[in-house]
Write a protein that binds this DNA or RNA. Structure first.
Lengths: 173, 173
DNA sequence: TATCAGTGCTTAGGGAGCTAACTATTGGGT
DNA sequence: ACCCAATAGTTAGCTCCCTAAGCACTGATA
């Protein structure tokens, strides 16, 4: 359960960026590259921290998101809908539901109006689990951004959204 | 190779945050929770986009980082050092090196001054690969943050660093 | 009405990362 | 000089997520 401890690993420096760009005789802006690299490093760290966080409650990030999404929709949703709203593949939903079902936090029922379909249901145990973890979960989420003032958070939200829009530049084509 | 396409999946809304907090009668600040949730969502997306990006060159994020780190250190480093500087476990380095060695981008040599140790060496093919992908890599990194002005990037860098410092709040204890 | 493309879900297989446990070697304390 | 804890690396086994391929069912079209 104790995850790999990182002193401050992948925090690339401006110097590194500059050196790499120079090595290949490119003309990229080192600061821009640095921002992108730092963001990718931060993304990885947040992901790992999230797993540790949810691991405390016997869940993973994916499983928590599925449970929370289910609760937000009256505790009942098809795997396809879940895949869409969580932004993962249907195969991934199958795996997440398998795990959650094994622990009795959700249940599968055949759909009444589509012979192919399933419905995933949040069980009482699942709802309990969400209720139990909520206080600590939200408290930790809050303290994660406690280093920023309200105004700074607003700015950050704006800048982050614009970068997220730029992510497709990495993946696109 | 074509990854799962997401319209705009896990972009939680302020309303959702508010509703969840209210459901459990908590007193958390919805905006703060929103920032944390958005950041986690963004982290996941960036991670996936990174895999797509490096997948184009027959690499993964981890493998690229290992190659780049190697090059930054004269093309020679021990697995333990790599684990430390990449911020991953030694077991993960073993796996990454296995893969890179299979493709001839890296080679293992027994250490001369420590009978237990290995040295991982960047091969000519490995250096070539880095050189080939550099132009596109840096161009895409740059365009990822192209939506921000230089000043905004500086602000973002500062805010991000302060949040990264707060990540331990999620994982700590 | 018979067919067939599309949709819903699962299975199979792969890569990344982790922890825990094991082997081999080193090096400091007695 | 010897022993034993610490260190280097690997292996085994887990979770998450993915793609690709398969099966079951639906529904529009000829």
């Amino acid at each position: 359960m104790t995850p790999h401890r990182q002193t401050d690993p992948a925090a690339p420096s401006l110097e590194q960026a500059r050196r790499q760009i120079a090595r290949y005789g490119l003309t990229a802006d080192p600061q821009a590259v640095l921002v992108a690299a730092r963001l990718m490093a931060a993304g990885a760290r947040i992901g790992q921290a999230g797993e540790v966080h949810f691991g405390r409650f016997g869940l993973s990030t994916g499983r928590y998101r599925l449970l929370a999404d289910l609760e937000d929709h009256g505790g009942e949703k098809s795997p396809s809908q879940l895949a869409t709203s969580l932004g993962v593949s249907r195969a991934t939903v199958t795996g997440l539901v398998d795990g959650l079902e094994r622990e009795g936090l959700v249940a599968r029922r055949p759909s009444t109006d589509d012979g192919r379909g399933n419905v995933v249901i949040l069980t009482a145990r699942g709802a309990d689990r969400l209720r139990e973890l909520a206080p600590e979960h939200f408290a930790r989420m809050q303290s994660m951004v406690a280093g920023l003032s309200v105004e700074e958070r607003t700015v950050f939200l704006d800048l982050l959204a614009r970068i997220v829009a730029g992510i497709e530049a990495l993946a696109e084509d």
